[in-house]
């Protein structure tokens, strides 16, 4: 039986992405992550969120959007939206609310944030609308797409958090 699912949408370059709203603790803006040397390029750095240290990942780098611009300009202007994810502790509480069509992804106990270009609305749709990603094979992004939803005026890609947060790259 189809049920309704809510996702938070955001933009990376021109693509619209979505993350299950149960995974998200909050959105913040204008973050200036403190970069940490010797970490993968997609680790933007650490931020102080009310006394808690949050590790921030740069989704664009993570998804392989290699922007030719230097890191500095990234920091200054565009990537200032940050989606803070719920940690496992919170996620346990939401387990029963989750729909098997878009199950909860456990992200670990360390607080994590994802940098995006722009955070948009929360969008609701039926689980029936989720389609498997097209296997075109020419898009490096494919492996990070959990599913595709066609909205009225746009295509929404559901982010595969599990893939994004796995360490092997």
């Amino acid at each position: 039986m189809a049920s309704s699912i809510q996702v938070l949408t955001f933009r990376l370059n021109d693509t619209l992405w979505g993350i299950n709203i149960l995974q998200i603790r909050e959105n913040i803006q204008n973050v200036q992550p403190t970069s940490v040397p010797l970490t993968p390029s997609y680790v933007a750095g650490l931020i102080n969120l009310r006394g808690q240290i949050v590790t921030v990942l740069d989704l664009k780098h993570r998804l392989g959007h290699q922007t030719p611009a230097t890191k500095d300009s990234d920091k200054d202007s565009k990537n200032t939206f940050c989606i803070i994810l719920n940690t496992d502790q919170d996620l346990e509480k939401y387990e029963e609310l989750a729909d098997p069509a878009l199950p909860i992804v456990y992200v670990g106990t360390d607080p994590l944030g994802l940098l995006t270009d722009e955070v948009k609305d929360v969008v609701a749709f039926s689980t029936d609308d989720i389609r498997t990603p097209p296997a075109k094979g020419d898009n490096a992004l494919e492996e990070y797409i959990y599913g595709v939803v066609t909205l009225e005026d746009d295509i929404l890609l559901l982010l595969d958090l599990h893939k994004v947060l796995s360490h092997d790259t």
């Binding site: 403190t34 040397p37 970490t39 750095g45 650490l46 240290i53 360390d110 607080p111 994590l112």
Partner: peptide
């Protein structure tokens, strides 16, 4: 001392992170 997340833990150089008096973060 606050622990580092697994994304920054793969180097032996750091033992944690902390929030300094001015609110900034230091490794």
């Amino acid at each position: 001392v606050k622990p580092l997340s697994s994304f920054v833990k793969n180097t032996p150089c750091f033992s944690g992170a902390t929030i300094l008096g001015d609110g900034t973060i230091s490794v």
